[in-house]
């Protein structure tokens, strides 16, 4: 993580709190957009937005707050891109890092929409409840329940019932 600012006390406290979350944010964004380079760009934008909002941040769960900013940016970017009919794919290149490690999982994930991927990450990896995810993604709780249910059913079917 490069230094986001220099001497100001706000920037110093921001960097001290947020810099350790850079890798986690890039990884989560890469999972959503399917492209590590794009994930890094989105992470930079997320850090800038977070820095702007830092003086107003209440201080609770900074990591989750940063991830939420980044994930919402990624979802918006993919939604905006989907409106352009000539760029239907969510990612322009095959993610070699994912295909090298777990191609079956990635192919199953690649068939999900960005909000479904985000909800899956926040639930399975970060342990947030449906209500917390709904609040972070600014959607009704029932929508998150539906996303998670359909996502897990899809993954069960694609990955086999590995219970």
């Amino acid at each position: 993580m490069e230094s986001v600012a220099t001497a100001s006390p706000i920037a110093t406290s921001f960097e001290a709190t947020m810099a350790p979350n850079y890798d986690g944010l890039v990884r989560r964004l890469a999972f959503i957009v399917g492209d590590a380079e794009e994930a890094k760009d989105l992470a930079q934008t997320a850090y800038l937005k977070a820095l702007e909002a830092w003086p107003r941040f209440d201080g609770s769960d900074p990591r989750g707050w940063l991830y939420t900013i980044g994930i919402n940016l990624a979802i918006s970017e993919l939604r905006r891109r989907r409106l352009r009919f000539w760029r239907r794919r969510t990612s322009s290149t095959e993610p070699s890092w994912a295909l090298r490690v777990d191609p079956d999982l990635w192919q199953a994930i690649d068939e999900l929409d960005a909000p479904q991927r985000a909800a899956l990450l926040l639930n399975v990896l970060d342990g947030y409840t449906q209500a917390e995810i709904a609040s972070r993604l600014d959607v009704p709780s029932g929508t998150v329940a539906s996303w998670l249910s359909r996502t897990k059913a899809h993954l069960r079917q694609r990955l086999g019932e590995e219970r």
């Binding site: 890039v26 990884r27 989560r28 890469a30 999972f31 590590a36 994930a39 890092w97 994912a98 090298r100 490690v101 777990d102 999982l105 990635w106 899956l120 990450l121 399975v124 990896l125």
Partner: peptide
């Protein structure tokens, strides 16, 4: 599996 995938990013 997701954790292993993300570590590879």
């Amino acid at each position: 599996r997701i954790t292993r995938l993300l570590v590879a990013v």
